[in-house]
């Protein structure tokens, strides 16, 4: 191989690597679905707390989460089966962050029931959601930054309005998380 071949090969490698080193792209529909499910969960707990819904309604919460999980599983399965589908290392790293944040929130909710009150447990999910959005934000997505800030603000507001904390946290999830998902989907169209 001479220097001209070496240059040609290096330029080809640079072109390919530049094309594949794209920014982190996430699918807004997952944030929309999970934001709506989580927000509705907070809303149901608040409405039951206020006596506006019967106690049995709280069972709708886990059903919502199961529905969101099933939806996610089906969509991911379909995506992976697409012939043109590819997953970048950055996307894999984001999925790891998302998975760790959600698993930690779930674990804390499971084992910390006596030290975290009902609204604290709901707020932990908002923190996990904010972590995911801020991770996307540091890769240049301003909508995710706004969504993360909305989630943090909802926690701050809920802290000073405990009687309606569920409404406030639900609003944070709807606006910050689901809102980010919807905005991202609209921006792609």
């Amino acid at each position: 191989m001479d220097s001209s071949d070496a240059r040609e090969h290096l330029e080809m490698v640079e072109r390919i690597v530049a094309a594949s080193s794209r920014k982190l792209e996430v699918s807004g529909e997952f944030f929309l679905v999970w934001g709506l499910a989580s927000g509705t969960l907070d809303l149901i707990f608040q409405l039951v707390n206020d006596g506006r819904l019967p106690l049995a309604t709280v069972w709708a919460g886990p059903l919502l989460i199961v529905a969101a999980v099933l939806y996610t599983a089906v969509r991911v399965r379909r995506f992976r089966a697409m012939p043109g589908a590819r997953m970048t290392l950055l996307e894999r790293e984001f999925l790891n962050v998302l998975w760790i944040a959600l698993a930690m929130a779930f674990a804390v909710n499971l084992v910390g029931g006596h030290i975290f009150s009902q609204w604290a447990q709901a707020a932990i999910w908002s923190v996990a959601a904010a972590i995911a959005l801020f991770y996307i934000a540091v890769h240049g997505n301003r909508r995710a930054l706004v969504g993360g800030i909305v989630l943090l603000l909802s926690i701050a507001f809920a802290n000073f309005s405990v009687p309606i904390a569920g409404y406030v946290l639900a609003g944070g999830m709807y606006l910050g998380y689901a809102g980010f998902g919807l905005a991202d989907m609209l921006a792609r169209e």
Binding site: M1, M12, V13, I16, V17, S20, M87, L89
Partner: peptide, 23 residues
Amino acid sequence: LLSKIRLSVVAELLNVQWVSFTD
């Protein structure tokens, strides 16, 4: 890796977790 096609394949896979044959 002296083959341009094999070098291209490795470069294509460098920043991705996986790529399908079709892609």
